[in-house]
Design a protein around this nucleic acid. Structure first.
Lengths: 256, 256
DNA sequence: CGAAAGATTGAGGTGGCTCAAACGGCGTGG
DNA sequence: CCACGCCGTTTGAGCCACCTCAATCTTTCG
């Protein structure tokens, strides 16, 4: 009756409560490992000084939800390590992952006073946390930061539109190819060599929830790509893309 | 072979070329009918003065594409009348409508120097057009405008995430109910009365492309809702929603 | 009024889902 | 070190929601 779903398993074995582990207090943003990424890259050293006083560093273990869907939006986050999945759910447990985000990404741009999505750590995730009023004050003071946030929001909007095209109109094969190609771009940028290797932390279930498919379909589709000589599936979550060019053609919808 | 599509008809009978009709030159933004909406509402009168000098008003007839997917992003637009559909396409003609926008909405936040989407007038559309450099200059000068743009982008992001959930995980019935309920909210705000009337300019094909379905499925699903006593289908593009509450329940995924 | 576009309805096909079983890696404990 | 259980992955068989193709009906508009 439901075309897709994760009713049983995905609802049942879902991670525990909102737990925030390992809060290390504020450190120096100027020497932060993600200094060059995300919002931070928009600021000068003296501005970073201010930022540092507002930031709380924290670590979140795999599987833990640190933003609960619909909860009060009290904080903003900046991902400084690991990978996070953002998601929305339906009452019966069906789940859509709206994006995977990693280092440099900014989280928490909420419209209302509540988060419209949830966020769960896939692997060990490091975050900078800012209280809403504090960050809003900073935005007020540093127009450059606002510029940066606008640019990032515009970027996400473009990504979201691509994903809507994928979810609304692409076949399973095209979706999986799109996902793999996206991963390639993340690792290699524009210059993707033949036999490019990727390894990602998300499970088949995550990929399914991201692509609007079931685990079985993702698995079968990957096997199909393997049979067609497009990829090899390595141990763990590793994949070798033999022909990125052909993969992209499939992702774009230009080939069967 | 393709699960969804608008290959034949939708590709063939597609609107003509990029045509911009009725350019009326710059007018006074202070007395503009959408003064209270969109980006304009963020500005003071003296700032609007500046805006007016940068704006070119234009009218676009139904069916005409005024932003071509992938073309150079030379302008920004502010919708001052009518309804616009935003879309992305695949090479074989499959099309996904990413949103319908109307008065007050801002268009053209492109990341690169090219538009990532196309825009087509559904009915008679009125626009304010700004050249990219001019608007960027204004943003530089008026932080309030930037604030406003960021807020609007954040809003669109939330909408986009909702749409991803819809496209990835909702049934046809839930999708159509979601669409109708969204239309209700547009017209009535939060207080939607029983037997609420709506009439919208988009065709069944547009709705299908928006919901990731086919025309036939949209039509059949609407008929199903009618049979179930949830709506009545009026002449033209009018629909009466007998029970908005039950419709919302379906849209949310909480009822069959 | 007539042509063209849009909407509805029917009949049949299929891509991806559901249910089910087997397989593999990995940590735990005996 | 191996047995065991858990979890994620793969594969198979069958089904169904939605798609495709096609005909008819309705609305719009010149």
């Amino acid at each position: 009756m439901m075309p897709s779903s994760l009713t049983a398993e995905n609802t049942a074995g879902r991670p525990r409560r909102l737990v925030i582990a390992g809060m290390e207090g504020c450190t120096n943003c100027a020497i932060c490992e993600v200094r060059a990424h995300g919002v931070c890259s928009a600021l000068r050293d003296d501005e970073l000084e201010r930022l540092a006083r507002a930031a709380v560093r924290m670590t979140v273990p795999p599987g833990h939800i640190f933003i609960e869907e619909g909860s009060r939006a009290t904080d903003f986050f900046n991902v400084t390590g690991g990978t996070v999945k953002l998601f929305k759910s339906l009452p019966d447990g069906r789940r859509q992952i709206t994006g995977f985000v990693s280092v440099g990404h900014f989280l928490g741009l909420a419209v209302s006073d509540r988060y419209a999505f949830g966020a769960e750590a896939i692997d060990q995730v490091k975050l900078c946390r800012f209280s809403r009023p504090k960050l809003e004050g900073m935005i007020e003071e540093f127009p450059r930061m606002e510029r940066r946030l606008l640019a990032e929001a515009a970027n996400e909007l473009v990504t979201a539109q691509d994903q809507m095209l994928l979810l609304g109109r692409k076949t399973a094969r095209e979706r999986v190819a799109s996902f793999l190609y996206g991963q390639l771009e993340n690792h290699y940028g524009d210059a993707i060599p033949p036999n490019a290797q990727i390894s990602f932390p998300m499970t088949r279930a995550d990929i399914a929830d991201f692509l609007g498919l079931t685990v079985e379909t993702v698995s079968r589709t990957l096997s199909g790509l393997r049979k067609d000589g497009l990829v090899t599936l390595n141990a763990g979550h590793g994949i070798t893309v033999i022909s990125p060019v052909r993969l992209e053609a499939i992702a774009r919808g230009g080939e069967s």
